[in-house]
Design a protein around this nucleic acid. Sequence first.
DNA 1: CGTTCGATGCACT
DNA 2: GTGCATCGAACGT
Length: 210
Amino acid sequence: MLLSCSFYDRPTLDVARDLIGKILRHRTPDGVAAGVIVEVEAYIGEDDPACHAAPGPTRRNAPLYGPPGVAYVYLNYGLHYMINAVTEPAGSPAAVLIRALEPIEGLPLMHQRRAALSWRKGKPAVPDYELCRGPGNLTSALGITLEQNTSPLTRGDLVIEDRGIAAGDVEWSPRIGIRVGTEHLWRCSVIGHPSVSGTKRRSRVPDSEL
DNA sequence: CGTTCGATGCACT
DNA sequence: GTGCATCGAACGT
């Protein structure tokens, strides 16, 4: 079932924790691609120096100040789209960055999209568990771009669903890839999951984890 | 094991 | 003009 707006209209750390185990799903003319959320980060308010709301309202971060339950998508490093779920009531700028998925639907389409990136041309295909490992990789695999910015996550083509999947054991750790605000343990991930980013890439993944 | 660096676009000051 | 909530390969130790 789809998550409703009330799910997102709560403290951001609670939403972050509860998003683990939920399904992010995107339908496009090319088909459907989806995965189980296994890694997220919380970005909370203007006092959080790593949050895009830190400088106060701007054109780019406007979705953070809007109602909860919509997607905040932006382009980073000129190459990678990042997708967040906006949380907390309108006027309270906060969101959860979705950093990694375990792919469960539309794997061939994901491979196709990843392989189409200019800097991946001619490179060997990645293993399935790496298709959505990392925020830039998962938006690429799901075909998420700026077109999905401010799109509702509660209905339509880009949604988050609850399929009753148990989240498994999670851990809280410092957010990664940022220069400030690293003192907060606002990154929530499934312990030992091969699709979680950040951890050193293993040359071999046990069959039991696939 | 570690660090560096290229690819690439745009909001922000 | 500067600096990113990245990725992954190429180096150096």
